[in-house]
Each structure stands twice: as C-alpha cells, then as structure tokens.
Design a protein around this nucleic acid. Structure first.
Lengths: 219, 219
DNA sequence: TGAAAACCATACCGCCGGTACAGTAAATTT
DNA sequence: AAATTTACTGTACCGGCGGTATGGTTTTCA
C-alpha cells in the first residue's frame, strides 16, 4: 500500500516531465517505465490507460498549485492588514517562487493540455477549467477587497485584471522557455504587480515619499 | 509546379489545425493525408520527414504573423502622428482582429512548439525564438518612441512591457480555450492597452498637487 | 514534344499503445 | 502463522503509425 503510492508518484513525476518536454501524445509509456524501473504490466496496474494517467497528472498538478496559492495568499495576509499591501506581497512572493526555480519554471500542465485538448476526455478538461476558474476567483476576490478600500482606475474590469495574472504567468512561462531566459517569468509577474499598483494608486502617491505601511510592499 | 504549391499549402493547413488540437507528436501523417486526399508517397514528396513539416509549419506561421504586425502597425501610424495614439490604435486593431475570429483564436504555434521542444531540432527552435524576439522588438521600439515624448511611470522596464504583450496574447489564447470563452483574448489585449495608457498618462490631478513640482523638477 | 514536377501503389520494418493472462514476492490483515 | 490483498513481473500478442524503398504514372510547363 505504501510502496504502491511511491511507485505511482514516481510514474507521475517522470510522466509530467516528459509531457512538459514533448507533449502528451509523444510521451511514450515505454520510456516512462524504463526510467521508473518497472514493467509495462506495473504501469497498467496503476493506470488502466493513458487517459487515466492524464487525469491523474492533471489532478496532481491542480492540487499542488492549490497548495501553493493557499500558502502564498495566507502569508500575504499575515504580513499586512491592508488588502492592497497583502496582495502586493503575495505577488512578490509568487514572483520570487518562480524566479528561484533553478532551471526555470518546469511548465504549466494546463497550458499543454489546452493545446492538446482532443487527446483527453471531458473529465480532464473540466478539471482544468474548474481549477483555472477557482484560481481566477482567488485573484478577483483579492482585487475586490482592495477595491472596497481604494479607488480603482476607470475603464478597468477587475475580472479581466484577475484573469490577466494567469495569462501573464502562462505567457511568461512560454516566453521564458522560448527565449531560453528563465528570468522573464519573474519579471513579468513583477510587471503585473506594478500594473496592480498603478491601478489602485492615485498618481499622487508616486510623487509622495513612501509611507510606512507601503514600505514592505514597495520593496 | 503551381499545383505542387497548392497541395503543399493544403497539407500545411490541415497539419497546423491538427497540431493545435492534438499536439505535434499526436498529429498522424496518415490522418493528414487522408484529409488532404493524397497518399503517403505524396506527403513525403513535399516533406522528407516530420521534422521538415514542423519547420515548414513554423516558417509559415512566423511569416503570416509578420504580415499581420506589418499591417496593423502601419495602419496605426497612418491614423495618428502621435506615437502613443498610434500604438493604442494598433493595440485596438489587434484586439478586434483576435475578437472577430468566429471560433476564437486557432492557437499559437510557438506556444505549442515550446511545450514540445524535445520533438524538434535546433533550427525550428531558433526560427521560433528569433520571431518572438523580433515581435518583442517591434513593441519595444513603439514604446521607446512613446517614451521619447511622454514621461514613463517609474519602476517599469519598457522591455518587460513589450514582452508582456506576447505573454498576454499567448496566455489569453490558453485562457480562452481552457475556459471555452473566445472573448477572453480580446478583453485581455484591451486590458493590456489600458495598462499602456496608464503607463504614459499620469492623472491630471497629480500635477496640481503641491508636491508635484519637486518631482517634475527632479526629472 | 520532352523533360521535369507531382504525384500513386505496394511492400516492408520497427516501435508503441494497449490487452490478456498467468505467476510471484512482499506487505497487511486476521 | 496463515490467509489475503497489494504490487507488481513475464510473456505473448494485436493493430496503427512513422518512415524507407522502389518503381511506376500523370500532369505541367518550357
């Protein structure tokens, strides 16, 4: 029972790396089992077919990201009572998290899967869509809290701003990989953070010296 | 000679749709030739192997996008002499272009390819990286032109802002597909446009504040 | 009209996803 | 300690696909 979970985890780890490097369709089960040191029968003991592997990969990915967001939003709230400041701290933590990865972000499973949707059944796609909606919801909630205290620049829909975070991260991962520069992602998240600051900071604060509560978030 | 180019184009069209829906590895040559109404020999007459198909797809994609950017930047410059206004017009045109696609954006080949990099040789990856760099360069140039006329918000690197457009588009495509809502992409581009507006348009009220002259004088 | 271009037909190889089924070592329960 | 479940191994097989090879055949254009 214990050992089974370990093997299963190892399979998922290897498969995820392969999927992010070659795509799901080009990820061969034979390569995965060779690297995991098991036989084909062993693989099919854990996953009845490739689609179940896909579902398990997606579930694992979503759960881990949920944990990360839980942690980083929690720490943001701990470090400031002000909703804007704590959100800016959260964004900073996220940027650091992405920037500290030694070989750059390994890639977003949701992104690969949406570019290979025809390979998966509806359950896998629904898991991904629900996860994205829930993550966007977190950001929209945080923005709403801020908007209850600070004035928002006109002409900006907070729903769009919330979704923009996901866009910047997924796009940033692609740019980092495509350009071969892992730092692009971190810089993009910080650029988005500056965007949020602008959104809620009436331009006067740009001119004034940073006040005490703003000092943490300001750097 | 003429007919050969037509067949080749048809193959590329079908293959691109398949790659964007299932990934390159899962795109079967047999399916492509079945849909194109040719035989396997016919396919290998045009492309000596699958990697050459990949290279041709990438080249075609890059060239078409170059044309689109040429057009949309040109029209932006035609409609205003002011660098900020013409860039905002360009962004608006791009948003409309993406929004008017009946079934949403078909997908970015560069995005799929970076998520399947192990499948391609260096030449394909270099074509993609060079294209991205050149597109980012266009945006950086446009931003530099604006910055020569308008003051820029402190703390923002224009290189990052330029790259952010690509991130927002690629991320927006993923979100549109993942959420099943084609309008997300257009809205994201317009959100980025608002971001650019903020970046260069300090609120009029700032300047009237008593401490403002110091900041202006300092710069 | 003749050569080059643009294919078609057929046969074949090896890899891979997936199935089926029989057997076994280790862990867990009883 | 015995029984049972878990977690696999081993073997054999099928069909599909990428890719190669080779030898035609039709179409296009100079």
């Amino acid at each position: 029972m214990r050992k089974g979970a370990e093997t299963r985890e190892r399979i998922l780890e290897i498969a995820e790396a392969s999927v992010l490097a070659k795509g799901f369709g080009a990820t061969s089960i034979e390569e995965v089992i060779a690297e995991a040191g098991i036989t084909k029968s062993g693989f099919f003991y854990h996953f009845k077919d490739k689609n179940e592997l896909a579902r398990a990969l997606m579930l694992r990915y979503v759960e881990e990201n949920d944990r990360i967001f839980d942690d980083v939003f929690h720490r943001g709230r701990q470090l400031s009572d002000d909703p804007l400041q704590s959100f800016l701290i959260t964004l900073k933590l996220l940027a650091e998290l992405m920037g500290d990865l030694p070989n750059g972000h390994p890639g977003c499973l949701i992104a690969t899967f949406t570019y290979q949707e025809r390979l998966f059944d509806r359950t896998v796609r629904d898991i991904a869509a629900d996860a994205v909606r829930s993550w966007n919801g977190r950001f929209r909630d945080a923005l709403n809290e801020i908007a209850a205290v600070y004035p928002v620049r006109k002409g900006m829909d907070l729903d769009d701003v919330a979704i923009m975070f996901s866009c910047v991260v997924d796009g940033g991962i692609i740019m980092s990989r495509g350009l071969g520069d892992p730092r692009v992602l971190e810089r993009q998240i910080l650029a988005f953070r500056s965007f949020v600051k602008m959104l809620f900071a009436p331009a006067a604060s740009d001119i004034m010296l940073p006040s005490a509560p703003a000092a943490i978030a300001a750097e």
